[in-house]
Design a binder for these strands. Structure first.
Lengths: 363, 363
DNA sequence: GACTGCTGTTGTTTACTAAACATGGGGAGG
DNA sequence: CCTCCCCATGTTTAGTAAACAACAGCAGTC
């Protein structure tokens, strides 16, 4: 079996009973091929032990996008965060597949950014999507400076010339505050995180900005700060309550995890949610729907963010001219449940505008 | 010629010597069809006088996107603005064609927004791109409320749940101010427009925000306001100069038109550009390259904005689920010419990251 | 007369291929 | 040992067959 030059695409085609073109399309993931045919071709490839010997030396690397999952300190990008990440990955991989990219994932934990940079140098990839949650401006400039087409998700910075896709924190926080206001609350508190990722920072800024926009004043003691883990938030809130702080009418928590710990502490001190204090979170983690009381929270389509990241990246990769950097903010939805006062029936997002099916005679 | 039911797609196919599928593809603009074949099919269609009688009653309207060119007062959307618009249209129509949409353009001048809304009601279109330059928040809510998939370009508002694609005014202004600062200027002025479209408003806000960010203070008399036409800006600047104002070291003009009038007035009063006063504009209109001195200014890819608007709109139209609203800010470039001090050689935008052509053996 | 279900006609779309095309390795000739 | 050309190999475009969907019209039923 060594003398005979190994098989060609045409041998496979004959064995599978299809045309050479079809084999080529299957092997390169192009065109529209039915599952049955694809399977038959792949089977033939396997049984004949075909090695695509042609183009370039060894095996060819298809166009690959690399997703960098970076946890510098891990205060935020941790287990609690994993629901998120998998939604991002869903969105990215669906769109990457549609555009014939392979999506590969590389995780970094506790390593310096330079390690990330090194891993990228000379890697056989077409573009990078980096999880920016814990990245500083300097980190981003460093990664951006590597010369690969790059998109950052889950963060956004002014001034930096890089591509970002993030949730629209400012509009989201507005929805929370406007909701509280509509329910008659005037004294609105904010539960922030000790650790300040960029999104947390943006939410904090949005809190003050939108309180002002709504004509509300922030009372000094109503902005709390706790650890950004369930246990930490619980413990910190307990300390605060023990020290006898004066509670506001309602609180916006910078994320759901913190809201869970916060609520648990409140309940333990006999504060009823939402009768005494209303709470709204951010992220809409799965538990939020099932906890008691069910948490009203902000929902952002992570899939959409992943999808848009791939779209922008593909443009970057294939454009013939340099592309201007683009910053995309994806809108958020307030999903109303029971943790904010006078819980009303579940709110529905407005229906999508139906596709107009025009039927007028032309001109 | 009346008894015989008029021709079918299969008659055309026979006449043109192709398959019925090909005729269908040609007539619907789908698939890949060579020019020759397309021509032959269309010829057959014409010569047989074929009327696609099937689907729905009359003639079918293809998927159409409508671009709304709205000039409410015309202070901004006028002749000077037309270079812009045509760049937007270029970007939109290229992408619309690629996605098999027809792009139609409807202009409104001086009519109330309700007229725009009426024109849309029941129109046989799939989606709308609206030129938001002169639209207020209320206008946008109104158009948005019509239930058609809609994207607004050339403006962006916080809080409103609508899709926007605009230039990144804040980052752009930062680039201007950073440039001035790097050249040693500390006293930086701003030439605003009397009329306040949203982009002008955003630039004004960005001016103050970024001056603060760069640790610079704004002197009271250094923020001027003039009319937003060439003649108006010229006349207003002359009045100011006649009244003997104290000029700053350099000025950022909120757009090129104003910069032209401003510079003309300055020159007339013996102020040398850039030796005495530096000026940077915004828009990079064609004249900016050829005037004397050539104007350093901000360039934004209007084509990219148009392209992205169509992309977002297409997502909106074809998505099976409701899509979250998206706000996109396209980055700007400072194109350095002679109107700012110590004019250096023409700056080039950094080359696009080359497509990585990976060839490593897989695992 | 109205409604229901069947049937054939028309147009659409998917999955596939023929043929033209690109690429590069290897052999013939210098 | 180098150059050039040819052809083997894989890729891509432009097309089709066949399955499919959407009706219109008609027959049969109540």
């Amino acid at each position: 079996m060594t003398k005979k030059k190994s098989y060609t695409i045409r041998d496979i085609a004959r064995a599978a009973g299809v045309s050479p073109a079809t084999v080529s399309l299957v092997l390169n993931g192009k065109g529209d091929i039915s599952g049955v045919t694809r399977a038959r071709v792949l089977e033939a490839v396997a049984s004949l032990n075909y090695v695509p010997r042609s183009t370039k030396s060894g095996i060819e690397a298809g166009d690959t996008l690399r997703f960098l999952k970076i946890a510098k300190h891990g205060h935020t990008v941790n287990r609690d965060h994993s629901v998120f990440i998998s939604d991002y990955i869903d969105g990215m991989s669906a769109e990457a597949t549609r555009r014939n990219y392979t999506l590969e994932i590389v995780s970094f934990e506790g390593q310096p950014i330079s390690a990330v940079a090194e891993s990228l140098a000379g890697a056989p990839i077409s573009g990078v999507i980096a999880l920016g949650t814990e990245l500083s401006e300097a980190d981003i400039r460093l990664v951006q400076g590597l010369g690969l087409p790059t998109v950052f998700i889950d963060t956004v910075y002014d001034i930096i010339d890089a591509n970002f896709v993030d949730m629209n924190n400012e509009d989201a926080v507005y929805k929370v505050l406007a909701r509280f206001q509509k329910q008659g609350f005037r004294r609105i508190g904010f539960v922030a995180s000790h650790v300040d990722t960029n999104n947390f920072h943006l939410r904090r800024a949005a809190f003050f900005k939108n309180m002002a926009r709504l004509g509300l004043t922030v009372q000094d003691g109503d902005v709390l700060s706790v650890e950004s883990t369930y246990d930490g938030a619980y413990a910190d809130t307990c300390s605060l309550l023990k020290s006898g702080i004066d509670l506001a009418e309602c609180y916006f928590c910078t994320n759901d995890i913190i809201a869970y710990g916060f609520i648990r502490a409140l309940k333990q001190f006999g504060v009823r949610i939402p009768d005494d204090v209303s709470v709204i979170g951010f992220d809409n983690l799965p538990q939020s729907a099932t906890m008691e009381p069910a948490l009203t929270t902000i929902e952002v389509s992570k899939r959409k963010i992943g999808y848009l990241a791939v779209t922008v990246l593909d443009d970057l990769i294939n454009a013939s001219e340099p592309q201007p950097p683009v910053k995309i903010l994806v809108g958020a939805d307030l999903v109303i449940r029971a943790s904010d006062a006078r819980g009303e029936p579940q709110e529905k997002r407005k229906a999508p505008a139906a596709r107009a099916a025009g039927k007028l005679p032309a001109i």
